[in-house]
């Protein structure tokens, strides 16, 4: 069970918003890169984030580049999970591969600062502040398994190959 408060963002948050190209020199220094996530949109995001808090966004989250540094640095900055109405394909897969949970649900029902509880196994999102419950879309079985192992590296270390259910 994940617990934290919501940081609300809009639609179409791109990987250039999350980790802009100008920070490319920091890409081999992830702890430093993580201090800058989303700074062009919200300069105080990282400083206000407590470990486990949720990034709540609108549609098409993570569009753009394939840079896996985007979900990795969100995770390293302390984001517990991303909740969005929809997510770009490469970002979604990357997030799961690095062990950052990403749930698709109707985020209109969540406001900035709401306290949330997320149960990954059932995909249920409990909005404690509003006393409401949200269901999230089910992800492919292979993705769930990768997430359960904590990411693709751990999964491959364990199985040595892809195991389709």
């Amino acid at each position: 069970m994940l617990k934290g408060k919501a940081f609300k963002f809009g639609d179409d948050i791109s990987t250039d918003d999350i980790v802009p190209g100008r920070l490319a020199p920091l890409r081999s220094n992830l702890p430093e890169l993580a201090k800058h996530v989303l700074e062009d949109l919200r300069p105080d995001f990282v400083s206000r984030l407590s470990p486990g808090d949720f990034l709540v966004a609108g549609k098409n989250f993570g569009l753009g580049s394939s840079r896996e540094h985007a979900p990795l640095s969100l995770k390293m900055a302390g984001v517990g999970a991303v909740l969005a109405k929809s997510a770009a394909r490469i970002f979604f897969r990357n997030a799961i591969n690095v062990g950052l949970p990403l749930l698709i649900c109707d985020t209109d029902a969540i406001d900035e600062g709401d306290e949330l509880e997320v149960d990954l196994a059932s995909g249920k999102v409990h909005n404690m502040t509003k006393g409401t419950q949200l269901a999230s879309g089910r992800m492919a079985e292979v993705m769930l398994r990768i997430l359960e192992e904590g990411g693709l590296v751990e999964y491959i270390k364990k199985y040595g190959d892809f195991e389709l259910p």
Binding site: S65, S66, R67, E68, I90, R93, N94, V98, V153, I156
Partner: peptide, 26 residues
Amino acid sequence: GADSHSVTAGGLGAFATGMGSTDVAV
């Protein structure tokens, strides 16, 4: 390719797509 514009090679009839670093490593 570990680059979102790997789709470019679709112009030659290849199923070409972009992935993240870890997917491409594997």
